[in-house]
Design a protein around this nucleic acid. Structure first.
Lengths: 248, 248
DNA sequence: GCTTGTGTGCGCGTTTATGCGCGTTAGATT
DNA sequence: AATCTAACGCGCATAAACGCGCACACAAGC
């Protein structure tokens, strides 16, 4: 087996399971723990996984549960997210022009997107764009200033580009979802991009796990009723009955 | 068996299996590992497969890992490139607006860029943008369609954004440098981006090792005299005396 | 017929990948 | 808090893979 293949195998094992231990990997791939550690180091440097004591976790999980150790394998939101993304991806139709917002949930969505004829994806995230292009999708990137933390593009150039586009449908993440305060996010510039992109989209979907309901972040980018919310898990009773909330 | 047929056979084996080792190929095609290595080198340069230690993988699979391996890849001209980039990076002045073209040489340039006050870097490459942002630079990305092979942005959106900008200085790569045919590149869309970006830049620099002198690629994006060429190595005598060629 | 150029194989020194041993460190246990 | 265990990083040794120069074979062109 090629070393390169082994690296890819590790990445997919990590992505699939959320986290794995060094001995598990060594056993599965038929090499010593030393080699696995070196591989994890390489992949960590390439930002493909996050190396932690005992093994490795997916980047997303490392971010959310930064101070948790490998032993605590809470797949809490992972199953939910898979289901949410699978459902959302099925909404994309052939020959459509689709907007994909930045964020970890929408990144997962990309893995589920179907290979349809004539679909063009537009995104404000360089990371998302790379993943889309890698999967062979026709991909367009907004211009603008690159925010290092989120790899998202913001500013007048991003907004000016959006003004020229009209999307059939689009998918956004949201840090807060509340009936009164609407859909909210921590960053004022990213909120602006979300707001304008939604304004140019016919069918608007927010994909999020149930934990965001009732949360409020600093900046509002849309009213609660402006989008259909696709979610899973224990949605508060208040929101379950709302006709723009789909629970999968 | 014709060499050309062998190359095609290698490509299809790689595509089919995802990855193969050098000995496997040598065995299957009845030639020595030396020949296989030469073939892989050829195919890698033509971007038909990705050469890795031990064998080759399909481009799709290798791409993500390549993010960091590009910088590790030491070509023949590596020493030269280092010197060229160091010299070029010293040309950036405080409070300036700088354009960075896509390509492997300009990627190396980014490692050498100084941390100056008030400098904004603009690029048409999502890969370059990530590296710039990672180094803490203020980074702007052109919009447009993402070409998967080169991670460069092209098309009307990229050109429209460029039309709004005026750069103090800029750095480009070039596949061909010839006195008569000018500066040339293989891709027609990327050539357009290069052409327009140069038109909006006051001080234009092409950074290239000496091997590109005398080479001609399909599409011309500028006259030979349009830029100052920073190079190193064995520059053909004809070009050494030209006053827009700097040899370091 | 001779030259020139290209493709291939071989040998050799160099680089890279891997496994193992050892002292050190981070988490877990009590 | 003290202790214990597993994981860790580092250096070294080895084997495989690698790049490069050289020699030879064969084909094309003068």
């Amino acid at each position: 087996m090629l070393a390169e293949d082994r690296l890819n195998a590790i990445v997919s094992m990590v992505q699939q399971a959320g986290s794995v231990t060094v001995p598990e990997l060594a056993e599965a791939l038929g090499v010593t723990p030393s080699t696995i550690r070196r591989d994890l180091q390489t992949l960590d440097r390439a930002h493909r996984i996050a190396k932690v004591h005992g093994g490795a976790t997916s980047l997303e999980r490392a971010h959310v549960t930064r101070d948790l150790t490998i032993s605590e394998r809470s797949d809490l939101h992972n199953d939910d997210k898979e289901r949410i993304c699978a459902r959302a991806a099925a909404l994309v139709e052939p020959d459509s022009f689709v907007y994909i917002d930045s964020g970890s949930t929408t990144l997962k969505l990309i893995e589920h997107l179907p290979r349809l004829e004539g679909v063009t994806y537009v995104t404000d995230s360089v990371l998302h764009a790379q993943h889309l292009a890698l999967r062979g999708m026709r991909t367009v990137v907004l211009g603008g200033e690159l925010k290092p933390e989120t790899e998202a593009l913001v500013g007048p150039d991003a907004l000016a580009t959006l003004d020229r586009y009209n999307f059939n449908c689009g998918f956004w993440g949201s840090n807060g979802i509340a009936a009164e305060q609407g859909l909210t996010t921590p960053d004022i510039e990213e909120a602006q991009v979300k707001r304008i992109s939604m304004r140019h989209t016919a069918k608007r979907f927010v994909i999020s796990d149930a934990s965001k309901f009732g949360m409020v972040a600093p900046v509002k980018f849309a009213d609660f009723r402006d989008a259909t919310i696709i979610t899973a898990g224990e949605v508060p009773a208040k929101y379950q009955s709302m006709d723009n909330v789909i629970t999968v």
